[in-house]
Design a protein around this nucleic acid. Structure first.
Ligand code: MN
Ligand code: MN
Ligand code: MN
Ligand code: MN
Lengths: 218, 218
DNA sequence: CATAAGAATAAGGCTATCCTAAACAATATA
DNA sequence: TATATTGTTTAGGATAGCCTTATTCTTATG
């Protein structure tokens, strides 16, 4: 019985709910790289288990029970990311995949002890908030860097696409890591390409990429 | 596809090979709590994958490839046990189960970094040797405590039944943990029950239990 | 050596998860 | 509003694992 599969579905749905609610079959299919037909089938199964609300052709939403499970998993995922990064020295661009496996192999006891060992950190290496043991849904903070105007400055808080190694390596090369100070020098009115200043050096970044970076304006 | 299942089979077979070679269908069935028929089927599957040698009615043995996979998994399992025990403070009686899940969720990179972080320990919390990265099969050291004669003394090296929490808690209560000095004061000729001295106190232990404790005679 | 007991496999079935192709619903567009 | 496009579900089928029951091997024993 692959409990694992159910958990991956819950995680996708939970993450997608930040942007889209209810969540469409096709979004889930895309994230999980699975056919829409398989998703339909699974949604019926999750409905029977009381993990999602679901009306055919109407999309899905986590129930209270599903949401709790989702936050538990997110907490575990991000705690492992912190461990892998801080203690094993694995770069932020490579922690997502291993954490995505480890999260499913983590008992309540291990999760609790791991949290204590790491001193219950507030954020993962990508800057995303770690749900507390009380399992309140944490607020993703900040606004997209792409939304700043020329002249505005901000402090980077987190990145949205945590599993894309190539993108994260690219950000590292720009000096764009959580906590970095960014100032927008110019914003192309044509396509929104930004000229920014990070660490006293000037860089360019496309609108698409800049929309995945969350900053707190200062 | 549950790679996990294949791995559990390899681990059982590898462990059983210490005592029995080739390994019988029924032993595997017993360890994995699965029907003999299921084992037969799985052995054919492992054969096709080149992980075991297998002749119907003739039992199974790991191939070179299977053995390598087995040692890799054993190494991961025991490294996690060390981590759980040493850093998360989970007792030796409770580390087996979580490690048995984590081992399957451990990439080569994480295994290597974890080994380094832990300083490549030689043994797990139960005293069992941890295969090195070079994957040579380590020798289980010592002889059963049950084989000592009255008057003989030894140093405990490891325990054989690592997943039996109740047994391990019992040993803890006797002061029998790896490294402990034991002296056999008496050995009942009737059923081999031992009277032993550990930590300057006298205890009794049955032959059955004493046969699961490995000691180095001194 | 014949046979009974025990071990292993074969046969037939079940569920979870995935797929493709076909049918159907919702929506956007003319 | 009719129609084309797009999204979703159904139908039908596959595979991995597991089970139970029946059959076939192997081995121990008289
Ligand atoms: Mn995962
Ligand atoms: Mn993260
Ligand atoms: Mn395991
Ligand atoms: Mn151990």
């Amino acid at each position: 019985m692959s409990e694992r599969t159910v958990e991956e579905y819950l995680e996708s749905i939970g993450a997608l709910e930040e942007r889209e609610s209810p969540v469409s079959t096709s979004s889930i299919a895309q994230v999980l790289e699975v056919s829409p037909a398989s998703v339909s089938e699974m949604l019926r199964r999750l409905l029977r288990k009381g993990l999602v609300e679901y009306h055919p052709y109407g999309g899905a939403a986590l129930t209270e029970k599903g949401r709790r499970r989702f936050l538990e998993l997110t907490r575990r995922h991000r705690l492992w990311e912190v461990f892998l990064n801080r203690y094993l020295g694995i770069g932020w661009e490579d922690v997502y995949q291993p954490a995505c496996s480890l999260e499913h192999a983590t008992s309540d006891l291990v999760a609790e002890k791991l949290g204590k060992f790491l001193d219950n950190p507030d954020v993962c290496p990508h800057g995303s908030p770690i749900p507390k043991s009380n399992l309140k849904r944490p607020k993703v903070p900040g606004i997209p860097l792409a939304d700043l105007e020329a002249g505005q400055a901000g402090k980077m808080v987190c990145v949205v696409s945590e599993s894309n190694s190539k993108f994260l390596r690219y950000l590292t090369s720009l000096g764009l890591i959580p906590g970095a100070k960014v100032k927008v020098l110019e914003k192309a009115s044509f396509d929104g390409t930004l000229t920014i200043e990070v660490n006293n050096s000037t860089k360019a970044i496309g609108r698409e990429a800049a929309s995945l970076i969350m900053v707190e304006p200062v």
